[in-house]
């Protein structure tokens, strides 16, 4: 581990932290345009965070320490995930500490903590949200793992860096297994990031909310960290998707010039990806909670199919 490697690693995390609110601002802007509304400024998420940090945190009387530590744990786990996901470069020092399976484990850790915190106050909405979140998670997590396994089978490795290197240096063409995996991954990302059609990030309607129900009791800096972590999660998922299915322009070294060259490519891909996400969200309607298993079951089956196709056709 060299000093430059360490700095590049830190740079990647800082870039992720800085770009995550911008990505969500961009998605919200696109959504507003697509539904013929006047768009909020793209920097709104930054202002929201700053506003929340200056406020006094209000914590329920019967909250346990789990409630107060959770925002930090979730945020920390997402920062680690941002260090693992190859967004700018593949050969970063932290990449060898955790592979694709450990990455899914980190997401699961964040999910379990946020669900526990939601149950901690003992309100009806909190436990409802926790139950729904774990319900979505138990189907989405295997589907995500199967998508990553398909990519691992192609590259013979579960290390994300090796996967991306292999995928980026293949012949350009349509690979049926990756096509299936791509559809499955898109569906899982929508569900995991609380987007339409599984959850609606813009609602506080009791009967439909999942993520919002869990963070209802949070305020001020705790809420800011949780919101930032959820944006970071969207950023991480987008970067995983880009790295697996559009793995071009990612630096394979750790030099400053390479990283600087990789940044515009990343921002360009994220801009297109964010616009597509807004398009999907605008075109679809939210599903009832009990239709979610069908949606995620389809994603899971597609991911398994991708693995089977890969084994049968070898591509």
């Amino acid at each position: 581990m060299t000093i430059t490697g360490l700095f590049s690693q830190l740079l990647q995390v800082v870039v992720a932290l800085a770009l995550a609110p911008l990505l969500i601002g961009w998605v919200n802007q696109c959504r507003a345009w697509l539904s013929n509304r006047r768009a909020p400024p793209i920097t709104l998420p930054y202002r929201t965070i700053r506003k929340l940090f200056t406020k006094d945190a209000v914590v329920a009387d019967n909250a346990s320490p789990i409630f107060r530590i959770t925002p930090y744990v979730v945020f920390g786990a997402m920062c680690c995930a941002a260090a693992i996901v190859p967004s700018l470069a593949t050969t970063l020092p932290f990449a060898s500490a955790a592979d694709a399976i450990a990455l899914v484990g980190l997401f699961a850790l964040a999910r379990v903590f946020i669900a526990l915190a939601a149950m901690d106050i003992g309100t009806s909405f909190g436990s409802l949200g926790a139950r729904r979140e774990m319900f979505i998670g138990f189907l989405a997590e295997p589907a995500l793992l199967m998508v990553l396994f398909t990519a691992s089978l192609i590259s013979g490795s579960t290390s994300l860096a090796t996967i991306v290197d292999t995928l980026a240096h293949r012949e350009l063409g349509i690979y049926p297994s990756l096509a299936f995996a791509g559809v499955a991954f898109t569906m899982v990302s929508l569900a995991e990031n609380a987007r339409i059609p599984i959850d609606n990030p813009a609602t506080h309607l009791e009967l439909t909310m999942i993520h919002e129900a869990m963070v209802l009791e949070y305020s001020a800096r705790h809420l800011a960290l949780l919101e930032w972590a959820s944006w970071l999660k969207l950023f991480n998922y987008s970067c995983i998707g880009l790295a697996l299915f559009v793995p071009f322009g990612i630096a394979s070294g750790t030099g400053w010039t390479e990283l600087l060259a990789a940044a515009p490519a990343l921002i360009g891909k994220l801009a297109i990806g964010g616009a597509l996400l807004a398009l999907i969200e605008t075109l679809s309607a939210k599903l009832r909670v009990f239709r979610a298993p069908e949606f995620l079951g389809t994603a899971f089956m597609l991911a398994v199919l991708a693995m089977l196709v890969n084994l049968l056709l070898g591509s």
Partner: peptide, 23 residues
């Protein structure tokens, strides 16, 4: 390490470090 690797101590250190720094 090319095929797969996992270092729980580093992961733990990173999470704890990130939490402390954030606080």
């Amino acid at each position: 390490a090319e095929r797969s690797s996992y270092s729980p101590l580093i992961v733990l250190g990173a999470i704890v470090g990130a939490v402390l720094i954030t606080i």
